[in-house]
């Protein structure tokens, strides 16, 4: 039940965002990534799309850091270290230059197939995978920073404290330990 509810919630989110977002042509697939708002330690651009915040000394926001960890656990196995692509799956630091937040959510939740004579690329649907969907914004924010060139390869050296809101969301989404 819980899994199904999660998919439903995700599809709703995607639908709602489809209706509301105007995609700008600059910066990356979701427009200008500059953080315009900080809500409980999570940053949003002026369109309301989740984004990163990186201080001059390299300190990243919690979600960028968390996204690095979750990416490395859930996505690296196909897309390679640091979103940089592999012999098996595309370079996401390139893909996210044109893929918008909403399209990103749609592909991760629903999967993608490109099977023909030249390709056998198949991405599974992660819509029922809590290890991915509970952290989907984190992963997006991390990859957005990588695609924009705002964040280099490897583990971010310094990060902001884990916000209470992030812990609350994690507990409600992942279920009891």
């Amino acid at each position: 039940m819980k899994s199904r509810a999660l998919v439903a919630a995700c599809v709703l989110t995607v639908a709602a965002l489809w209706a509301g977002v105007v995609i700008a042509a600059n910066a990356d697939g979701s427009g200008d990534p500059t953080a315009a708002k900080n809500q409980d330690g999570k940053y949003y651009d002026k369109q309301g799309t989740p984004t990163y915040s990186i201080k001059p000394d390299g300190t990243v926001d919690w979600y960028t850091y968390s996204g690095y960890r979750r990416y490395s656990s859930e996505c690296l196995r196909c897309h390679g270290p640091d979103g940089a692509g592999s012999s098996y799956a595309p370079d996401l630091t390139n893909s996210l230059k044109t893929v918008s937040y909403t399209d990103f959510l749609g592909v991760v939740a629903g999967g993608k197939k490109d099977v023909n004579t030249a390709n056998d690329l198949v991405m599974p649907s992660f819509g029922v995978d809590r290890n991915v969907m509970c952290y989907i914004d984190d992963i997006y924010i991390y990859l957005r920073a990588r695609a924009d060139g705002a964040l280099g390869r490897g583990r971010p050296a310094k990060h902001e404290e884990k916000p209470t809101a992030a812990q609350k969301w994690e507990n409600s989404c992942m279920g009891p330990a």
């Binding site: 899994s3 690095y68 960890r69 656990s73 270290p81 029922v128 995978d129 490897g154 992942m174 330990a177």
Partner: peptide, 23 residues
Amino acid sequence: MDYEPFRVSYTAGQPYVGATLSM
């Protein structure tokens, strides 16, 4: 490598990894 384990939940047919690695 560096290895950081963390909590994951199990869903049949989905990855069940629970660690971040850099090599």
